[in-house]
Amino acid sequence: MPTFFPHLGQTQTNAPADFLSARQAGLRESKASALIEIEIDATRQMVLLFAHGEQVGAFVVDNAQARPVVIHELPPAWVAAKKSYRLAILPDVAARLAWLACESQQRNALTLSGPEAWTRQLNLWRDARFAGLAQVSSASEQAFAYFQNGRPVKQDTIFSNADGFSSSLPEQWHEKDIQVVTYEINPASVANQCLQLRQSTRRWSNAVLKSYRNIAGQKLLQVMNHDVMLHIRPRQWNIQVEEEGILDEHFFPAVAQQAQAYQTVLLACNQQMSFAIGDYLTRRILIEMFDELSRDERSTLENHRLIPASISA
């Protein structure tokens, strides 16, 4: 029984021995983010996750609980055996949320029966200011969402059905028998470090751009965003600078790479802001908005040298 995005990809049974390596090579070539599920037995499967063609993790999923394994340590006979494989090409957000789920511990699992129960659940999360990762699945739909203050976070939410993917949770879940799993995120996991850095950068950039918009106006903010996007375009990151801040929909397999990308984007923003309102005011905005972040957010950013001094230097 597939766990992640079950309605996607085609399952190949009795695959040839070189099936896996051929698919891995294909993903590397196309730089696609994807997952490959390999059936081990009736209750267990292996999940391989890829970020832009590079494998970022291998997990054995046993009764919806994932644990990491090192794939090259698997017995060659096992790898070579004719297994049932499923390859699903995913948007970056979907792949990295699957990665986060695999690196987290299952906390709660419940079954909801129908649309009303789903709406009730959303309200419950909202009232309880739920924070964490939730996986919602039904027969042909699945969603992953990272919640903060009881609301799904825009850049870490994905909903998938036969029509494709969308980045918001549906208010109405039309299918019955909805399985909801919430996860306890492992703070030390790389997936979580990437998530925290993403969130902190989003919050900081949001506050900075809001201040800049106040001084320079909406139109100059749009000019800036446009120029920054042109600047980072050759990098082919799924990162956008929008009015609410940096929207990162790229699957970075390592937090250092992610921090480097943010540094580039923030430096470009800083430069554009300096053109309009000068170095001093730009630096002041960066510092004041950084100081308004929570201690955890500041420390996350500081750990990766995403600080006003390094951006406005």
Binding site: L8, I89, V93, F165, K219, L230
Partner: peptide, 20 residues
């Protein structure tokens, strides 16, 4: 002039995501 430049910006298209 800087603000006018927004009237006819160079087209920007976000890189397509896998699975799109």
């Amino acid at each position: 002039d800087r603000l006018d430049s927004l009237s006819a910006p160079q087209a920007y298209h976000a890189p397509a995501q896998a699975g799109d």
